[in-house]
Design a protein around this nucleic acid. Structure first.
Length: 783
DNA sequence: TGTACATCGTTTTTT
DNA sequence: ACGATGTACA
């Protein structure tokens, strides 16, 4: 095994020395008793159950400082893992601030993935890789799989590459290699999954590449098969800290358990109530089982909340109490009572957006005795990103500045990935995937056929594609325009490659040269689509980002793991984001729209995971409510356009679970008398009327009656919600028994309604199911 | 190779 | 509704 970097040890020692010299421990005095207990229990396993807003990061960073201050470990002997770069950055900043200096000396504070890259580069040869392996992102991954699938003669219509990528990702999350894949998985992907998995891994090895899942999996494999390596790291990492432990998957769990196995100085911080990533492999079980995994573990609960008002906390607690198998926490606060959680129902999604827009504007001036709330203190948290649209539309028309958080990341954009592929080919000419990406971008007249020729020649000679392409040109296998263009590209690649180490050209200039001379910039300049200017702008930003790195390789190395996109504009804007994206954030005012059964909790989640799914959705509700500091407004709409169809739905079952004492029901303006009953005008079935009326009830003082009834419906029966989604278009315009006309089938009577489809008994054509929009009422026909 | 039309599948997302 | 993706045809 290679020795540890001298520099790590050196920097570490000097930092530790300075930390020690800082003397005293003011950071301990700032902690509450629970936090302090968590910080001072340095040795042995510790589980810090940190509720939302209870000062978890504060405790975690204080713990690191305390480890240093007491001389337990030097900075480079502490392994401290997070999930996101953002969390890692924040921890570094805060530890640095506590120590009064920057934290260069903590090389092992980072994300699971970045730490695994470091480890894997040191030991790559143990899993058959070279230490300069490339890291593929999801896009590369799928393209590679597509090739394998086609080569295997599988119809990728029925069995899409994305699906296989998802399956393999899941396997990797569970730390299943092709060799130890359980028999239960044999049938995956039409029975060809296991075989393709093995093939895919072999191909990655050939390409000297890994995907994200491999980073963890390979390191776990190394630890499991090379005890000497494992032992060295067990000794080296004297203390381990884990953030967001409830989000760890099996591979990460194994990784941690292996590393902590000897000394068991592991401190896991998390909140089982905020586990919302089960669908991507996170195992809440990891945190629930902690005390069994580490007998004698010290469990500390952080329950004093510094974020929200008592009403908000009580509402959140009331909802989360519906989950079983919790470790159990009760948040409390010393804050003043404040506003109750506000609940409001609307006729449809547009009205909901309109009302929220107006409410935000009213808040700027301060409503009902509340302090004025700035736009950037407001967040709208939605379950699914398609809900954002209504808000964007509305806010654009009223000119309310907003910002959407999440969405496609900078480094995932097409133009950025193309540019990076150019850089990759230039810095490592054997990067076949990158070459494939750029060989015909911009269009060089190198279609499928030319690319196959290149592949064939490269394979026949056992060389990478770039060399294969060179041979193809030499041998005159690619003729005409394509040949000339390819020759020019190859020429450029060699020229740029020579300039890499050249002191007369900075890497930033080189990057610009590559993009210009390859014709890539020109391609977008000539593009007349509206997004072209934005893409050119992004390319400029990419080049600017390069300045912060020493060279192209250094840049590529970092960028493959850093996918975040901090926007630097400072205008006060309302934030719109998904509930998932909101985890870890907080806002004075939070709007939670779309609380309808089927949307939230999401139908899919319930169908696929049943009770477990509902519980995860409930945790999502809990996360949403606990983001709010001062005012939290929950809303639902009776009708909503989903996939172009009007659908009506019941208010979310989570609304039933809000404790009445902490909720104020608002009445939307312009809701006269019958309100939701309006849908019944067309003579709708009574059962539908009843459901719509039930929705209406939330807007009135009669909401309380429903609260009383809520006990009869503590948890939804499977399949219940499915029946509650009713096509409003069908509801408002047709009803069973109605006489109708169809252009092709003539007259008939409706005998059933199913979504947008009507079952009709036609006088001449018999019983048929037809789409509602082809139907008109019989007396509408003008002849 | 490029463009026009059809078809499909639509939760959540980090690294 | 809508966007991504694939197929048919110029």
């Amino acid at each position: 095994m290679s020795s540890y970097d001298e520099s790590d040890a050196f920097e570490g020692a000097s930092l530790a020395a300075r930390a020690m010299a800082a003397r005293g421990a003011p950071y301990l005095d700032e902690l509450n008793p629970a936090q302090r207990a968590a910080v001072e229990a340095l040795d042995g396993p510790v589980l810090m159950l940190a509720g939302a807003g209870t000062g978890k990061t504060k405790a975690l960073t204080a713990r690191i400082v305390h480890l240093l201050n007491t001389g337990r470990a030097r900075p480079n002997e502490i392994l401290s893992v997070t999930f996101t770069n953002k969390a890692a950055r924040e921890m570094k900043d805060r530890v640095g601030r506590l120590l009064g200096q920057s934290i260069e000396g903590m090389p092992w504070l980072g994300t699971f993935h970045s730490i695994c890259v470091k480890l894997l580069r040191r030991h790559a040869e143990l899993v058959g890789l070279k230490s300069n392996f490339t890291i593929l992102d999801t896009d590369d991954q799928v393209r590679l799989m597509k090739q394998l699938i086609q080569a295997a003669g599988i119809d990728d219509k029925r069995w899409p590459a994305r699906m296989l990528a998802g399956i393999i990702d899941n396997w990797k999350n569970r730390a299943w290699t092709p060799a130890n894949l359980p028999a239960s998985e044999a049938g995956a992907y039409d029975g060809k999954g296991p075989q393709l998995y093995a093939l895919y891994q072999a191909r990655l090895k050939e390409l000297n590449a890994v995907d994200f899942g491999d980073l963890l999996l390979h390191v776990v494999t190394i630890f499991q098969t090379h005890d000497d390596v494992l032992q060295q790291y067990q000794r080296w990492f004297r203390y381990i800290l884990v953030d967001e432990y409830q989000d760890t998957n099996v591979a990460q769990y194994l990784w941690l358990r292996l590393l902590a196995g000897a000394h068991k100085n592991i401190c896991c911080v998390g909140d089982d109530d905020q586990s919302i990533y089960g669908w991507r492999g996170a195992e809440v079980g990891n945190i629930l089982r902690f005390e069994k995994d580490f007998p004698g573990a010290h469990v500390v609960r952080l329950e004093q909340n510094y974020r929200s008002t008592p009403h908000i906390l009580a509402a959140a607690s009331g909802v989360i109490a519906g989950n079983k198998g919790r470790l159990g926490k009760e948040l409390w606060t010393e804050a003043e009572e404040g506003e109750k959680v506000r609940l409001i129902g609307h006729w449809d999604g547009e009205e909901e957006a309109r009302w929220i827009g107006e409410e935000i504007e009213a808040m700027q001036g301060g409503t009902r005795g509340m302090r004025p709330i700035r736009r950037d203190e407001v967040a709208i948290l939605v379950r699914a990103s398609h809900q954002m649209r209504a808000f964007e539309d509305r806010f654009l028309t009223i000119g309310l500045p907003y910002r959407v958080i999440g969405g496609p990341r900078f480094y995932e954009r097409m133009e950025i990935r193309d540019a990076m592929a150019y850089f990759r080919v230039v810095t490592s000419p054997s990067d076949d995937l990158a070459f494939e990406r750029i060989v015909n971008t911009p269009k060089r007249g190198l279609g499928d056929k030319a690319q196959q020729t290149i592949q064939r020649i490269a394979r026949a000679n056992g060389v990478p594609l770039v060399q294969g392409a060179a041979l193809a040109v030499e041998q005159g296998e690619i003729k005409g325009k394509g040949g000339t263009e390819l020759a020019r590209l190859l020429d450029g690649l060699t020229r740029w490659g020579r300039l890499i180490g050249d002191a007369s050209v900075s890497h930033v200039e080189l990057a610009e040269m590559i993009l210009d001379e390859s014709g890539y910039t020109g391609m977008w300049q000539n593009d007349k689509t509206p997004e072209a200017p934005g893409r050119l702008e992004n390319l400029k930003e990419l080049v600017k980002a390069l300045e912060q790195f020493e060279n192209l390789q250094g840049f590529l190395e970092h960028v493959s793991l850093i996918m975040d996109n901090e926007s630097d504009d400072t205008e006060e804007k309302v934030s719109i984001m998904t509930l998932h994206a909101a985890k870890g954030l907080e806002f004075p005012a939070v709007f939670l729209p779309g609380w309808e059964d089927g949307l939230f909790p999401s139908q899919r989640s319930m169908d696929e995971s049943g009770q477990v799914g509902v519980e995860e959705e409930r945790r999502l509700a809990y996360v949403g409510i606990t983001r709010a500091e001062e005012v939290c407004t929950i809303s639902f709409a009776g009708n909503r356009r989903v996939f172009g169809q009007w659908q009506s739905a019941l208010p979310s079952r989570f609304i039933d679970e809000l404790p009445e004492a902490h909720v104020e029901v608002l009445t939307p303006p312009g809701l006269y008398g019958g309100g939701y009953g309006a849908a019944g005008m067309g003579g709708v079935q009574s059962s539908i009327d009843a459901r719509v009326a039930e929705a209406n009830v939330y807007n009135s003082p009669g909401w309380k009656r429903l609260q009383a009834r809520a006990g009869q419906r503590p948890v939804a029966q499977p399949g219940e919600a499915r029946n509650t989604v009713i096509d409003m278009k069908a509801v408002s315009s047709h009803s069973v028994g109605e006489r109708v006309f169809h252009q092709k089938f003539g007259y008939g009577a409706i005998i059933g309604i199913e979504g947008d489809k009507l079952e009709i008994d036609f006088e001449k054509a018999g019983t048929k199911k037809v789409v509602a929009r082809f139907i008109s009422a019989a007396d509408d026909i003008p002849f």
